[in-house]
Simulated scan of single mutants.
Amino acid sequence: MASETYSHGHHHSVVDVHAVRTAQDCAGYLLPELAPGMSLLDVGCGPGSITSDLAALTAPGPVVGLDSSEDVLVQARELAAGRGLANASFVAGNVYDLDFPDETFDVVHAHQVLQHLMDPVAALREMRRVAKPGGLVAVRDADFSGMVWHPPTPELAEWMRIYQLIARGNSAEPDAGRHLLAWALEAGFTEITPSSSNWLYATPAERSWHADSWSQRVLHSAFGEQAQDRGLADAQGLQRLAAGWQEWAAAPEGWFLIPCGELLLRA
């Protein structure tokens, strides 16, 4: 398989966003299934904020966070240690070749991971391999083409066009949310509980936070680097996109909705 490219990269403007995610706002569909003592693997754990929440809920059961980036794992370990979560550990790894025996975990979880992969079906099969019989594989992914915003902002439309080209240029699927069910069926799952949930940015504080994040990501993260390397935008164009995000945030009627697909898959 060709080398994977993570479309978002690991600039602090990206990791800082991931670091404020919680199990409550990112894995609500999974939480009713969890119980103390369960073992859990969190694939693509990033800086570990969701992983730590899950570890608190399933303690004393062992929770392993896995990511391809050693840099973010340092942050994840520090967070778990600071919260006194002795049952949480973090390792570098590859979702296509998980370094665990068959039937190891009660739950295998992946949040916003499949959208970045060249072969999400193979990843789901590997996640199922390490889940115990009757255990759960839980996945949640955004659907970029399903995102809606108001007021109409040409720079945000251009941002979306460029993001789609970047992700697809990396052989990824930015509209993963709508594909999850098809991928799960192809991977061989038969007991499937689908659901969806949204992120909404509509208060002044939420709009400011979301716009500040994407303004920085447009200019400094892998988004901007790939856009320029592939001739999708120049530096001036990226500055215009960043300003467009701030213009959208300043509108008192500003609204940005991100839909996410979710699946609970019985192994």
Rank of each mutant, 00 (worst) to 15 (best):
S221T: 00
T153S: 08
A211D: 11
A205E: 15
H210M: 12
Y201D: 12
H220V: 05
R161P: 06
H210G: 03
N198V: 13
A202E: 14
S145M: 09
W159L: 06
H179N: 10
A167N: 04
R178V: 05
V148M: 14
Q216N: 12
H220I: 02
P174L: 12
R217T: 12
A222W: 03
Q216E: 15
R207I: 02
G146A: 05
T193Y: 12
W183R: 08
F144S: 00
R178A: 06
P194C: 07
R140E: 14
A176P: 01
A157K: 03
T153P: 09
P174M: 07
A176W: 03
A222H: 04
W149T: 03
Q228V: 10
A182Q: 13
Q228A: 14
Q228E: 13
T153W: 05
D229S: 15
W214S: 09
L165C: 08
G146W: 04
G224H: 00
Q164F: 15
W209H: 10
L165S: 07
W183P: 00
L185I: 11
L185A: 07
D212H: 07
L219V: 12
N198H: 07
W214N: 13
P204F: 14
W183Q: 05
W214F: 13
G188L: 10
S171D: 13
P154N: 06
S196F: 14
A184N: 10
G224K: 00
T193I: 10
L185P: 02
P204K: 15
G188F: 04
G188R: 04
F144H: 05
E206H: 08
G224Q: 01
F144M: 08
E155N: 09
Q216G: 15
S196K: 11
N170A: 14
P194Q: 05
I166T: 04
A202G: 15
F223M: 06
H220S: 10
G169W: 00
S195Q: 06
R168S: 15
W149K: 01
E206G: 06
I192F: 09
I162C: 09
Y201W: 15
A157Q: 06
E225I: 10
A205Y: 06
A205G: 05
E173P: 02
I192Y: 07
E206W: 09
T190M: 08
E158T: 15
A187W: 09
G146N: 05
L180V: 03
G169A: 00
A211L: 11
S145Y: 04
P204H: 14
D229P: 04
E206Q: 14
E158H: 10
E158C: 08
T190N: 08
S195D: 15
R207F: 09
W149A: 09
Q228M: 15
R178P: 00
E186P: 03
W183L: 01
Q164I: 14
